[in-house]
Structure formats: C-alpha cells, structure tokens
Simulated assay, not measured.
Amino acid sequence: MIPLTDRQRREIAVLPRILWSVCRQDGALVEDGDEGSIARLRAALDAVQEEAFAGLYFPKDLRKAEDQITKATRAVIVRAGLEDQPNAKIVAAVWQVFAHLIEHDELAIHDGSPMADVVAILEPAHAHVYESPALARSAAKRARKLLDALHAQGLWTRVPAIGEREVAV
C-alpha cells in the first residue's frame, strides 16, 4: 500500500464526514429510509472514513490525522454555509461535488466499496431534490460554495470550480 499524504487523508474523509454529520442526527433520515438502511449507511460512512487512517499505527499519528480531518471539515462546513441547511440540501450539494470529482477523473467509486454502499443507499433517498428546478438550483449553488470551501482548505485543488452551466437544470 502506498502511504497517503495528510492532504490525501483529508480529501478522502471530509465529504464523507459531512454526510456523517447529517446521518448521525437522531431522526435526521428517518423520512428518507427505513432504520435498517440508516444503520447500513452509518456503517458504510464509518468504513469510508476509516480508509483515511490506513497505514497509521501510532496513536500520535492517528490523533494528528483525526484532528486535521475534523478541523478541515468544520472549516468547509462553515465556509460553505452548510451549518443550518436542510439535510436534503446538504446531501444534494455533497452529491454534486462527488459527481464533479468523478467527472474530472479525480475520484472513482468502485463496486463493492463502502462508498458504493453509501451511493446505493443515499441516491434514491435524495432523488426528489432534483425533481424541483428550484431545489436543484439551490443545491447547485451550495455545491459551488462547497467546492470553493474545499479548495480554500487546499483539497481537490486540481478540479476546476463548478461552473454555472455545468449545474444548470
């Protein structure tokens, strides 16, 4: 296994950590799925975040990585204005950023991976956001702010900003 840099660890963990912040709230996703799906989603998000700690064996190194990821996640949430947004809007914004990263060959989601499980559970639960042009535009605007906030933290900097035309519905 090739060792990850601190930046790569943050890139791997920040977006799933944002999703986890939505999913850890009691009752946050009950309307979007059954309790079994929510438990599977939380377990898959835990597994995705654990990938960021691969190769770290010393408590000092684990603590440092956890602190960096937590600090970066908080900064991104605040800068993107996600702290008081509805859960569906947050998930939709993260979703659009994931799609943008995949489109630009910076992220791959492999079948059978924990992230593939997250996708399989969340995608149908939040598809309704894209049925409304107003909600879709709002999510797109939030996705642009989210990617800008990631760039400000030095994350995913090789990916261009999300343009107005790319996210127009």
Rank of each mutant, 00 (worst) to 15 (best):
D111W: 00
I162E: 07
E66S: 10
L150E: 09
P160M: 00
V167Q: 14
E166S: 14
S138Q: 13
E131G: 15
Y57V: 07
P133Q: 07
R24C: 01
I109G: 03
T5E: 09
G36V: 05
G112M: 02
I12D: 09
D148T: 14
D84T: 11
R7Q: 12
R17S: 14
A108P: 03
D117G: 13
N87D: 15
I102K: 12
E35I: 09
A120S: 11
N87S: 14
A152C: 09
A116C: 04
V78I: 13
A13I: 01
A47D: 09
G27T: 07
I18H: 08
A93Y: 02
A43H: 01
L62Y: 00
R79K: 15
V94F: 01
A39H: 06
D61L: 08
G81L: 05
Q68Y: 05
R158E: 08
L4S: 07
V76M: 11
R74P: 07
K145P: 02
E83I: 01
S138D: 13
R42C: 05
W95N: 15
R63S: 13
A161F: 00
V78A: 15
A88I: 00
A161I: 01
L155N: 14
V97L: 04
A139I: 02
L15E: 09
A140D: 15
R17H: 05
M1T: 13
W95A: 15
A125L: 02
P16C: 08
H126C: 05
G112D: 03
H126L: 03
G36S: 11
R142H: 12
V167R: 13
L82T: 05
Q49K: 09
S138R: 11
G36Q: 12
S37N: 12
L4G: 05
A93K: 04
L41R: 01
V119L: 08
A54G: 12
Q68S: 06
H100A: 08
S21W: 02
E83C: 10
P133I: 00
W156E: 04
R74Y: 06
E166D: 15
D67V: 01
I18C: 12
G81R: 05
V48N: 07
A143V: 06
I77H: 10
I121K: 00
L147M: 09
A143M: 13
H110C: 05
A116R: 06
R7P: 14
K141A: 15
R165E: 13
A75P: 10
C23Q: 04
L19K: 03
L15T: 02
E164I: 06
V94I: 03
L56R: 04
W156M: 01
A139R: 07
F53M: 15
A44V: 04
A65L: 02
A93T: 03
L135H: 10
E66P: 06
I90D: 03
L4I: 01
G154Q: 06
W20V: 02
H110G: 08
L82D: 10
P3H: 03
I90F: 02
L62P: 07
V91I: 02
L155E: 12
K60D: 10
R63A: 14
T5A: 09
A149L: 04
H128W: 01
V14T: 12
L101R: 10
W20I: 02
V97F: 05
W20E: 14
V14W: 02
A54W: 00
D67T: 07
E131M: 09
L135P: 05
H126Y: 09
A93Q: 03
E164A: 14
A47T: 11
A52F: 04
R142G: 04
V118N: 08
I102H: 10
